Structure formats: structure tokens, C-alpha cells
Computed example of a mutant assay.
Amino acid sequence: MADLSGTWLGTYWQQGVPTRFEVTFIQSGNTLAGNILDEGYLGEAQITGTVMGRGVSFIKQYLTTSPDPVSYTGILSEDENYIQGQWEIRRLFSGTWEAYRGEDNLSLEFNNKIVEKVPVLSSAIAD
């Protein structure tokens, strides 16, 4: 059985507009739990779901911004590093989503990328 445990970076599309998210999956047997942090105003959500073979399904419930749960289904790639699928809210809204397995510490990875892009002041300017 596939093991999704760990941190993943993903994107979902609603009416063609992408929203990025970070999800931490905790898997025990075929039971899935975890937390998602969406960019922007949507914020944090909790998930509960299942893993059956390479099939993934879970419900995302936002903690503050939306009372409606979001149903996700997806298929895990053979190398177990990529998931893609569909999401749906009460059969009224739907779209596609995907996620890639991330590094162990995504915050550190993100901060390192920022530091790489920040120019270093030369000592002549600093004096």
C-alpha cells in the first residue's frame, strides 16, 4: 500500500484560477488525516480520508472561512510522488487539483530560495 505521509505542495483550480496549498498527510494503514494551508484568505483546513491502493479520497474542512466541506479524489503516481484528481463542493463547484511530494522542511526550503534572491550589500556600500 502506498504511504502518503509527509508534506506535499499542490495547486487546485477553480474556474481556471489556481490556488496553491501545502498539505501534511498523516497515514495510518488506509486512514488519512492531516492539515492543509491554502494561500490567500482561505487559510487552514483539516482533512480526513482514505487510501486504497493508489486511490486517494479525503474531505477538507476549513477551520474558519467556509462551512462547506470540500471532497477530493485522486490517483497517486506509480513513483508515489505525484497525485492528481478532482475536487467538489456540494455538486455545485468542482475543479482539478494536483500535488507533489515536498521536502522535509518546506518553510526552510522557501526561506533559502528567498535568501538566494536577496542581493548582498558590498562592504563599500555598508561602510
Rank of each mutant, 00 (worst) to 15 (best):
P18V: 03
P18E: 06
P18T: 07
T19Q: 08
T19M: 10
T19I: 13
T19H: 08
R20Q: 14
R20L: 10
R20V: 14
R20G: 10
R20C: 10
R20A: 13
F21R: 04
E22C: 11
E22W: 06
V23K: 00
V23P: 01
V23E: 01
V23C: 06
T24P: 06
T24S: 11
F25D: 00
I26W: 06
I26L: 15
Q27K: 09
Q27Y: 10
S28N: 15
S28W: 04
G29S: 10
G29A: 13
N30C: 05
N30F: 06
N30T: 12
N30M: 09
N30K: 08
T31C: 04
L32C: 06
L32W: 04
L32M: 10
L32R: 07
A33E: 07
A33K: 06
A33M: 08
G34A: 07
G34N: 05
N35D: 12
N35A: 11
N35L: 09
I36V: 15
I36F: 03
I36S: 01
L37N: 09
D38Y: 08
D38W: 07
E39A: 15
G40N: 07
G40C: 05
L42C: 05
L42K: 06
L42D: 10
E44F: 03
E44L: 04
E44V: 07
E44Y: 04
E44R: 06
A45G: 12
Q46R: 11
Q46G: 11
I47G: 03
I47K: 04
I47R: 04
I47F: 03
I47N: 05
I47S: 04
T48K: 12
T48P: 03
T48C: 04
G49N: 00
G49Q: 01
G49M: 00
T50N: 03
V51C: 02
V51E: 02
M52D: 12
M52T: 14
M52Q: 13
M52I: 11
G53D: 04
G53P: 05
G53H: 03
G53K: 00
G53R: 01
G53Q: 04
G55I: 01
G55M: 09
G55D: 13
G55A: 13
V56L: 09
V56Y: 02
V56C: 02
V56G: 00
S57T: 02
S57W: 00
S57K: 00
S57A: 12
S57G: 09
F58G: 01
F58S: 01
F58Q: 01
I59A: 11
I59D: 09
K60P: 02
K60T: 06
K60S: 08
K60Q: 15
Q61F: 06
Y62V: 02
Y62H: 08
L63Q: 13
L63C: 05
L63T: 12
L63A: 07
L63P: 02
L63N: 13
L63S: 08
T64I: 10
T64E: 13
T64M: 09
T65A: 10
T65D: 11
T65M: 09
T65C: 08
S66Q: 11
S66V: 05
S66L: 07
S66W: 03
S66H: 05
P67A: 15
P67M: 12
P67N: 14
P67F: 11
D68E: 15
D68N: 13
D68S: 14
D68H: 12
D68T: 10
P69W: 11
P69R: 12
P69V: 11
P69L: 13
P69M: 13
